[in-house]
């Protein structure tokens, strides 16, 4: 006669179901978040377009920078720091030295050196100032766009009702628990 313990434990099942229930909870929370996000981003398409256009106007090297580092970069671009222009300074010195070697005139070489300094360092600084302005415009729009639903902390590309609903479907269909994996999947789908 088989004897079974009335209160028999099944640790394998306990382990499996505690894991899946955690994952299910995470998934439900993510789905809820995406749904609320989609509702929040309803009607903000114009703002997103503006933000994406502002990003397109940025030089390529600034276009895909981390959002968190943008403010620091703007400050850096605004402030004149000679250390940032050491390469230009060296170029000016080389030109000055070459000019002196050719024409043996200290005054003329100094003038050329100063002229080069104004053109290269000044030009570089002006470009940085211009970029700082563009970055600032983009940053302000990005802050405004992300601020519509800050819980998600998403790239501007995904701050729209349509994209968030696509992410929602992906999370649901693939039983995902993280937003990052959903974004990767969406990128893969194109």
């Amino acid at each position: 006669m088989a004897e079974f313990d009335k209160n028999m434990d099944f640790p394998e099942l306990d382990a499996y179901f505690s894991k899946t229930s955690e994952a299910a909870d995470d998934r439900m929370a993510l789905l809820e978040l995406l749904k609320r996000g989609a509702v929040a981003y309803r009607g903000t398409e114009e703002l997103r377009k503006k933000c994406l256009n502002a990003r397109e106007l940025l030089p390529k090297e600034y276009r895909y920078l981390e959002f968190a580092g943008l403010q620091k970069l703007i400050e850096k671009c605004k402030i004149f720091d000679l250390k940032n222009y050491s390469r230009e300074l060296i170029k000016c010195i080389i030109i000055g030295v070459c000019y002196y070697t050719l024409f043996q005139s200290i005054a003329a070489s100094a003038v050329i050196f100063i002229l080069c300094l104004i053109v290269m360092v000044g030009g570089g600084y002006m470009t940085h100032r211009k970029n700082a302005k563009k970055l600032e415009t983009y940053y302000n729009l990005a802050v405004e766009l992300r601020g519509v639903f800050p819980e998600l902390e998403l790239e501007e590309d995904y701050c729209s009702e349509e994209k968030l609903m696509s992410l929602y479907d992906i999370v649901q269909a693939n039983e995902l628990t993280s937003l990052e994996s959903a974004v990767v999947k969406l990128k893969a789908i194109g």
């Binding site: 088989a2 079974f4 313990d5 028999m8 394998e12 099942l13 499996y16 899946t20 299910a24």
Partner: peptide, 23 residues
Amino acid sequence: SEALDYPPDDVLHVVAARLMEQE
């Protein structure tokens, strides 16, 4: 649960083995 999260076959086999021990 509603997600129909049935355990994989290997987990069921382990549980079955545990039950067989009691048999």
